[in-house]
Amino acid sequence: MFRKIWVLICLVVVAKVVFSDLKRDAEPKPPADPRLAQILTLVEQEKSDDAYEAIAQMLPEVRNPQVVQYLYKLRAHIEVERRHFHYAIESLTQAQEAGDQSMATSARIDEIKNWIGRMQEERAMADHYRDARGNGMAGELKGQVTILYLYLNDNRWSKWSGKDRLQNRQYLQQVTDWYGRRATEYGLVKPTFNTRFFFLTSPKGITKEWLRSKAFFSDAQHLIAQQLGYGNMAQFVEAKAPRGEVALVFHSNGEARSFALSCRSKEKAPRCHYEYAMLTEKMVPGARHSYVPQVQAHEMLHLFGAADLYRIRNARDYAVTDIMNYYSDTLGHATIDPITAWSIGWAEAPNAPFKIENKEK
């Protein structure tokens, strides 16, 4: 599960403040350089990804200290816009190393460090990374993957309109496309996804407490039997996903905290098979919309073995753009770092500043 959505909205506000301040600092009297002018044009046109790449290409070629300082600060405010705060501190520090002695830059570094500190409310809950690889219906994020996506509806707290479902399908398409792009970064063939949507109505209503209760999964099986015509979960899964990996997702259109119940390692849970993600992200306009695909991607990665990094004490400054640790401004700017890649079957176990269960296996 991930930090509450209202905390993330606060981070959006923080990011906007930092971004505007950094941009204001960068705008006065930019050094004269035609290549820099081109980059600034890209920034003004809101083509920040192109500007970021152009900065990376230009930095090794520049000898003018003022231009170097300016480029690093410009890179920093793009990184803040992406909510890659650790990278922004690194860029501003490099600006200082290139000769920037301004109080503003020094104060900005301290300010961003303070904001990072405010994001650590759950950091000390774990000391090690748990191994949950290759167990349950969703083993590794490879090959053929069927996503069984069940909308939970009660026409009150969780009410799904056709528009809501269409928007959610678009979000989920972003997620599966993103998984594919990240897989290619590890030299893997993109997984193939078959997403199947279903609609379940709960006559007794839906509450946050029920969704988290031990009774939910049994109750959900009864709803599937009554409304979809399958005797139990096994029959439903076998009919809809006879082969490959299976990710079972429930989604209520109400505002609460999403979570996943996934199988632990085969050693600790040898008989565990059924696992599911419970999404409670409401389809509403505004800033939160940029987070729904990240919540979906994060919670489903749990099913394939990924563990939360944001809960681990020594992971504060490790894998800082990994989606299991920090959110970015958009899913496209989030990453799957080697620790998460290991957990979902994509890579070898990396070195880390904390213990990794069964790292050598």
Score class of each variant (00 low, 15 high):
R24S: 07
L42K: 06
E44A: 15
Y52H: 12
I55M: 13
V62P: 12
Q66W: 05
E79F: 14
V80P: 07
Q94V: 01
D110A: 15
I112Q: 06
I112Y: 07
I116M: 14
R118H: 11
R123S: 06
A124R: 14
A126Y: 12
D127V: 10
H128D: 09
Y129P: 03
G134N: 15
G134M: 13
G139R: 08
L141Q: 06
T146W: 07
L148H: 07
W157C: 01
W157N: 10
R169Q: 13
A183G: 09
L188N: 12
P191T: 07
T192Q: 11
F197R: 04
I206D: 06
A225E: 14
Q227D: 11
R243K: 15
G244A: 06
E245K: 03
L248T: 02
L248W: 03
S252M: 03
A256Y: 15
C263I: 09
K266D: 03
E275W: 03
K282Q: 13
M283K: 10
P285M: 06
A287D: 08
Q294K: 00
A297R: 06
F304S: 01
R311L: 13
M324E: 09
Y327M: 13
T330W: 03
L331Q: 02
A341C: 01
E348V: 07
A349Y: 02
K355V: 07
K355H: 11
